[in-house]
């Protein structure tokens, strides 16, 4: 038997392997949608060549909020209090704009207890990725409805939800979010380019990802189950992502078949038509589409709305390129003459 040279390790543009993007073993239920999402986060961060040391993983409370432990162990993380991750993330990004900030939240953490902070995060267009692992149910407290549960959906215990759901995507667009996508934990082909697009975006990217709870909300009659998602998913388009550091290939498509969105960092999102011609930069059309598909009971996925040039919060505040946290004392403490002058006005 001949000895062959070891297979060269696959590395990304930083020379890092997939292992460098791993987390600790998940403690979630086997088959949980959240773990599938964690895998796609690792994959997209690896492929984009994001330095793990620059990443800040933020979360609140709940099953979803535990997941930052299960990816990117070489990144700092802050698992805070229930529903308040947006404010912690905002503060972290204000202090250090060089951080790549990713927040993972759930439907309860986001639109039940955290509705206020979520809305204001979007209004401010804070540069970060905000993932909602949406399963319509509180898993960690053993299966109560959240505010995204559909009316008529039934818990295993037989309890029926009779309140209308909050649609995270409609809400996000209304709140001024500049990157709004919906996807499904069982569709990595779509989720990875959406995450990569989010990594290229300069404002808040909100990804509402249906992530079935295998223990409490995956049964017959649930509208957040694997089966329901598969049966009702309506792809808005096929998505490809061309990162800014790769050469742009020319692709030939028929007229009206392809839309291309150029992102802040020069990356491109390519959207191929499936059933309908859809322009994700048209805010009104996005809202119409969300309303229509909600009424027809379709589970619409894809890049629903994007505004790649929206001014983010840090630029609005006229922050420097250097992180505020890295400013030396000379920049932080004004000189003697400043104190003299300030006091002169009070004499």
């Amino acid at each position: 038997m001949s000895v062959s040279a070891p297979k060269p390790k696959r590395v990304n543009r930083l020379g890092l392997t997939m292992i460098d993007y791993r987390g600790e073993p998940s403690t979630l239920c086997s088959g949980c949608g959240h773990d599938a999402i964690s895998s796609q986060i690792m994959k997209s961060f690896y492929e984009m060549g994001v330095n793990p040391h620059r990443v800040a993983k933020m979360s609140g409370i709940g099953c979803s909020s535990k997941t930052p432990a299960y990816f990117l162990s070489n990144s700092h993380a802050f698992n805070g209090v229930h529903g308040r991750m947006p404010s912690l993330a905002t503060g972290a990004v204000l202090a250090n704009r060089k951080l790549v900030c990713i927040g993972v939240s759930g439907d309860g953490d986001t639109v039940s207890i955290g509705l206020g902070q979520f809305c204001h995060l979007l209004r401010r267009n804070v540069p970060m990725i905000y993932i909602i692992e949406n399963n319509g149910v509180y898993g960690l407290t053993k299966g109560q409805f959240s505010a995204t549960a559909d009316p008529g959906s039934k818990l295993k215990t037989g309890v029926v939800n009779d309140l209308p759901p909050i649609d995270c995507c409609t809400l996000a667009i209304e709140m001024g979010c500049s990157y709004v996508a919906r996807s499904y934990a069982g569709d990595p082909k779509q989720l990875v380019p959406l995450l990569q697009g989010a990594l290229s975006h300069s404002g808040t990217s909100m990804l509402d990802v249906l992530s079935p709870c295998v223990t409490f909300n995956n049964h017959q009659g649930s509208t957040k189950s694997y089966r329901w998602a598969k049966e009702h998913e309506e792809l808005l388009h096929q998505i490809d992502f061309v990162p800014h550091f790769e050469p742009i290939e020319t692709v030939v498509y028929e007229e009206g078949e392809l839309r291309e969105v150029e992102m802040h960092d020069g990356s491109r999102i390519r959207l191929r038509k499936v059933d309908r011609d859809y322009n994700p930069t048209d805010r009104d059309a996005a809202l119409r589409m969300l309303n229509e598909t909600r009424d027809s009971g379709e589970f619409l996925t894809g890049l629903i709305y994007v505004n790649p040039v929206a001014e983010n919060f840090l630029d609005l505040l006229n922050l420097p390129d250097t992180a505020l946290a890295a400013l030396p004392q000379e920049k932080l403490r004004p000189g003697r003459e400043a104190l003299e002058e300030a006091m002169q006005g009070l004499m």
Partner: peptide, 17 residues
């Protein structure tokens, strides 16, 4: 709540908040 949350996030990331 958000006011303090932001300040804590900033303090965590190294700013005087």
């Amino acid at each position: 709540l958000a006011a303090l949350g932001m300040a804590i996030g900033a303090g965590w990331a190294g700013a005087r908040a």
